[in-house]
């Protein structure tokens, strides 16, 4: 087996493992998704106006995504560090770039599920209208944003894994880094939702921004993940 295929196999195995853990524990479905939903309801209480909600729905969807992501990332690495699983993988000589790819992919799948639910919530609760073209753009936005979020989340999650006080540290480290995703994804979603009279064509430049972010952090992540977790 060439090193390349073995790396892909490892990444697939790690991703499968993470998704299987999630499938068995149902943390995402039973805890994170309800949390995200209640955040959306709380936004409605705070803003208390149908017109405003419809206008700011894109931003709220992505804010709720980011908050939920913090929990999912914590969880993703709590599983790894609880019984030294991550160290065991590293001692076994597993390529850190493959671990990074696998964990990022599992995180992306979970985030996509969350985002789909949140967009659905926005349609139902905030009265957002989604055309067919808008839906297509929404899917592209979600994919581009999620690749970036998955890579950054895994990278910084790995940094904070297994240290005391990581629950408080992760948001401080992660939120400033994902600011470009919040900006880009919110604007692209505004275009997809047509919030404030935005046209669909206005969304594409923002998707390019999301793409650049995803490209930068997937490349850097596979290089930097090794030194970060190698302890």
């Amino acid at each position: 087996m060439s090193p390349r295929t073995s790396r892909v196999n490892v990444a697939v195995a790690v991703a499968k493992k993470d998704l299987l853990v999630e499938w068995n524990s149902k943390i995402l479905m039973n805890q994170v998704a309800p949390f995200a939903a209640i955040v959306m309801v709380m936004f409605a209480f705070a803003l208390d106006n149908d017109g405003i909600l419809q206008r700011v729905a894109p931003g709220l969807v992505w804010l709720a995504t980011l908050f939920s992501m913090l929990i999912v990332v914590q969880r993703s690495f709590a599983v790894e560090t609880a019984d030294g699983a991550l160290d065991a993988l590293r001692v076994a000589g597993v390529d850190p770039a493959a671990i990074f790819a696998g964990k990022s992919f599992a995180l992306m799948v979970q985030l996509c599920a969350l985002e789909t639910m949140l967009v659905g919530t926005a349609v139902v609760l905030y009265g957002v209208e989604l055309t067919l073209g808008g839906l297509g753009q929404m899917v592209v936005t979600m994919v581009a944003a999620t690749i970036g979020l998955g890579c950054v989340g895994t990278l910084y999650g790995g940094l904070a894994a297994g240290v005391k006080g990581r629950e408080t540290l992760l948001p401080l480290l992660l939120l400033p880094v994902v600011a470009p995703v919040l900006i880009g994804a919110t604007r692209a979603t505004e275009a997809a939702f047509g919030s404030g009279g935005a046209e669909i064509s206005e969304g594409w430049p923002w998707i390019v921004l999301l793409g650049i972010f995803a490209l930068v952090f997937s490349t850097v992540g596979s290089v930097a993940f090794g030194p970060l977790v190698d302890e």
Partner: peptide, 23 residues
């Protein structure tokens, strides 16, 4: 090691944030 990697990540992050905020 942690802080060195983080400092180098910041070098990447800051131009991205600046660029997107400008946009």
């Amino acid at each position: 090691r942690r802080s060195s990697v983080l400092a180098l990540l910041a070098v990447l992050e800051i131009p991205l944030v600046h660029f997107s905020v400008r946009l």
